[in-house]
Amino acid sequence: MTLDVQFITMISMTAGGFYLGMALDTFRRLSVYWKQRVLLVYVMEISFWLMQTLLLYFVLFQVNSGELRVYVFIAILLGFAMYQALAANSYKRLLEHLINVTVKVYRFLVNVVKMIIITPITFIIQLIVTVIVFMAKLLWNLIQYTLKIVVAPIVWISRIVFRMLPQTIQRKLHKIAGFYSTIKNTCKKWINNLMSKRR
């Protein structure tokens, strides 16, 4: 390995250590969002360090074909120490600012989506449901009114004809009507009991 390659390797790995400090602070700051889930914590930790290792080795491979030397690790530690000493506090403040801006933008977009899309769609659906229920009630009342108009003369004529019948036939019809009324009430009770059990 030539001196030029060694020098570029040192610079690259120092920059890699500096980047590693930034990435670690970013990861630690964002880890509060999943720290309550133990399994996810382990998965994220392993994924983070595996990704950083692969990324640094990829940079090393591009610089010196992936040759590992002691000074490579020293350069990474140097870059990490430089970050901690010179830029950690400033980067953390910048990171907090970026997170706050991102959260505000996200909330703004959510409110815009609710205002422009969700709220109008909800209003339209409620309006359609209200109109359908109103029309159904209106139609049902119309049907009931029509049935009353149609049935009223039939009931009136039936009562006149019933009064004209002999007493024996009237008593038989009363018995038949009572029998059907008993069956009707029994069916209603059975249906009500069945519905109450399902509830």
Rank of each mutant, 00 (worst) to 15 (best):
I176D: 07
F108W: 13
T168I: 06
V112F: 15
D25W: 05
Q62T: 02
G16D: 03
V112C: 08
L60R: 00
L60I: 03
L138D: 02
R28Q: 09
P166V: 04
V38M: 05
Y145I: 03
A23N: 08
C187M: 03
S90Y: 07
T2N: 15
I124K: 10
L78S: 05
I99Q: 10
Y19E: 15
I117K: 03
K104D: 02
F134S: 12
I132S: 05
R159M: 05
F123C: 13
I76T: 12
L98A: 12
R37C: 04
Y145M: 11
N141R: 04
I154A: 07
F162H: 10
K114Q: 06
L68V: 13
I116M: 09
F7Q: 09
L54R: 03
L109T: 10
E96P: 00
L24Q: 12
N185M: 06
L173D: 01
F80C: 01
N141H: 03
F7E: 07
W49L: 05
A177V: 15
T168N: 06
A177F: 13
I125Y: 10
A15M: 14
I8K: 12
M44C: 12
K175T: 11
G66W: 05
V59P: 01
Y42Q: 08
R163E: 14
A177M: 10
T14R: 01
M195G: 06
L78N: 01
L147T: 04
R69I: 11
K104V: 06
M82F: 12
A75S: 14
L3P: 01
M51K: 11
K188I: 15
P153E: 12
C187T: 05
I157P: 00
F123D: 14
A152S: 15
I160D: 04
V5C: 14
V151A: 15
E67M: 09
S31Y: 04
Y145T: 10
I76G: 05
I118H: 04
M164K: 14
I8H: 09
Y106L: 12
N185L: 08
M1T: 15
Y42E: 08
R199G: 11
L109S: 14
V113Y: 14
V110I: 11
S65R: 09
R198S: 11
R159W: 10
I46M: 13
